[in-house]
Amino acid sequence: MRTSTGTRLTLRTVALGYLFALLAVPIGLILWRTFGDGVGAFIDSIRTPAAISALNLSLLIVAIVVPLNVVFGVATALALVRGSFPGRGLLQAVVDLPFAVSPIVVGVSLILLWGTSGWFGGVENNFGIRVIFGLPGMVLATIFVTLPFVVREVEPVLHEIGTDQEQAAATLGASSAQTLWRITLPAIRWGLTYGVVLTIARALGEFGAVIMVSSGFPGVSQTLTLLVHSRYIDDHNTYGAYAAATLLMGLAVLTLLLMTVLDRKRSTT
């Protein structure tokens, strides 16, 4: 289709204006507010004990969630692509559930299930492991909302590579474990990496599900998103909220940069 110069310029202006107003302005505003008083104030604000604890907790949750999602995500993707078992269609639908269900619903249902009067309440009542209002609850909530990413990124790659390479490895004497380790995993590594990056970004940014199951004590059980929220709403420390938000954004941007770099590497090999 040919468009006149005038139309082309109008379309570009509209698209850029849309992105600018909806994405660039809000983010730019926060950056401006954060660094308006100099970098020193920003650094002071993110070096308070509560901020350091929140950063650590966010990273700890990522560190627990990512390996679990990698192992179970790859296993689920393999089952969905290679397996033939009753209920496969159901599993397909269940994997997408976190996309459809609001995070706040996830939080409520976790309390219902793991709370002291829930089905699994025995874990806390008998063993003294605090699930809801403790780290396990936040991990469970984050796993729920990030579960589809690895599965959905790995699945199409598995479809694409087919079973020829794995069968070839078998005829060459490789056991199933050797085939998985030396053939299948390297073949899906880019899809897996992509899924991991998305998982990290989502885990860092999760708010709705986590706030329901966290006790929310500053310096103890606040993630970065909860810190932003409590500083703004509870402490009326707007500057602190901006600074924490900037830190959160910084991590997200870092993750996205990593993804772009990996993406470029993928297209060259």
Partner: peptide, 20 residues
């Protein structure tokens, strides 16, 4: 006996090259 232990070499129509 599993394919691993049959002492065979197999060549596939679409090469089945280990791409990585």
């Amino acid at each position: 006996v599993a394919p691993q232990k049959r002492g065979i070499g197999f060549v596939f129509q679409h090469y089945a090259a280990f791409k990585h």
